[in-house]
Computed example of a mutant assay.
Amino acid sequence: MGQNFNNFGRINDRLIVGAHPRDADDIDLLYNQNNQNRVTAIVNLQRSGEPDRGDIDAITEACALLDNRIWYQRVPIRDGNGESLCFHLPEAVGILNRAILERATEPPGTVYLHCCRGIGRSPSVAVAYFFWFTDMTLDDAIAFVIAGRNVAVPNRPAIIQATNNILGANVNGNIGAAERVRIQGHVTTLPRVTNA
Rank of each mutant, 00 (worst) to 15 (best):
M1Y: 05
Q3D: 03
N12Y: 02
V17H: 06
G18E: 05
G18W: 06
P21H: 00
D26M: 05
N32K: 10
N35H: 12
R38H: 00
T40A: 02
I42A: 03
R53W: 00
R53E: 01
D57C: 06
D57H: 10
C63R: 00
C63L: 00
A64Y: 01
L66D: 01
D67G: 14
Y72S: 02
Q73P: 03
V75Y: 03
V75A: 06
P76G: 11
I77C: 08
I77Q: 04
R78M: 11
E83Q: 15
P90S: 06
I95F: 01
L96M: 09
L96E: 06
A104I: 04
P107I: 03
P107R: 04
G109S: 01
G109A: 00
V111Q: 04
H114Q: 09
I119K: 14
R121W: 06
R121A: 10
S124H: 11
A126C: 08
V127D: 10
V127N: 14
Y129D: 08
F130A: 12
L138K: 13
F144S: 07
V145F: 06
V145M: 07
A147V: 00
N150G: 10
V151I: 14
N155W: 05
N155F: 09
R156E: 15
N164C: 15
N165F: 05
N165D: 15
L167R: 13
G168A: 11
N170V: 15
N172Q: 14
G176E: 06
A178K: 13
E179V: 01
R182K: 15
H186S: 07
A196H: 07
